[in-house]
Nucleic acid binder design. Structure first.
Lengths: 140, 140
DNA sequence: AATATATTGTAGCCTGTGCTACATTCTAGG
DNA sequence: CCTAGAATGTAGCACAGGCTACAATATATT
């Protein structure tokens, strides 16, 4: 049984737009991690951790700046704006919740970390809330 | 605590390559659905259901053909090769499993369908197996 | 201080996936 | 049969996100 045409189109549309934001989220979270663990967020480090060339990282950082999530000056490290920091916090919380849920349903920990990286960008607020409830219930 | 640099790069790499295959999977699954429900898979229908222009759909269909997943002749509908059909079957099974798992942990059904569209492309075989075990255990 | 190395930034290319506009072909109604 | 409208296909554009190669700057070593 095929779903309604418009519904289906909307589903795919949502998945596409989620994907469009995924890159920004990954960068912001990583930068926040780097800044948080006592160091700076330097383009080369960011590039290495994301597994891309430094040129690619710099272009993406430029996009972060365009979108008001980060700042940087020539030959200085990258910093987050308040908006960027907020986004990072939300993304990190979501990431944890996704990993925890995967583990709770029996996914091996290492695998949960791997899969969560791709999954997290597509989990809605409603689903996150459900995850939290499920984990809470299970904990008792 | 930051993860190991190489591990982290590998995670992102995996997520990127999963994303690269996602579009093909969506098309193949949809085409199989259309063919399966008694009709043809026409480019215009495919485009409408995916929420993209017909030109975009046709270009993606060309890619499916390049990759040996589909066939079509000028002004005829699209068909799947055996490889395409196999992929569609795997994708559909995975989709169902993801939706069922989301529902099982308390995500509202409609939301589960929405989120699954994006999530499914990032769920590894190991995680799928865990989902199946979890659902089986819960069913009893 | 001078130079070698590492880091940062720029330029230009490719591919993928959107789009609109236009051309072609099919198909149905008159 | 022939013409109007739908469907299909093509061309060309934009943007994102990869890459390599090169240029510029900063840092470290001698």
């Amino acid at each position: 049984m095929l779903p309604d045409e418009a519904d289906q189109a909307q589903r795919f549309e949502k998945a596409r737009s989620a994907q469009a934001g995924a890159l920004l989220e990954d960068y912001v979270e990583l930068i926040d991690d780097l800044l948080g663990s006592g160091g700076e967020a330097r383009p080369t480090d960011i590039a290495r951790r994301l597994g891309v060339s430094h040129a690619t990282a710099i272009k993406s950082i430029a996009r972060l700046k365009r979108e008001g999530l980060a700042t940087s000056k020539l030959y200085r490290g990258v910093f987050l704006t308040p908006e960027g920091h907020d986004l990072a916090a939300r993304v990190r919380a979501r990431h944890r919740l996704v990993v925890d849920l995967l583990i709770a349903v029996g996914v091996p920990e290492r695998c949960a970390e791997l899969d969560a990286e791709g999954i997290e960008h597509h989990v809605s607020e409603a689903a996150l809330a459900a995850f939290a409830r499920f984990l809470e219930a299970k904990r008792k």
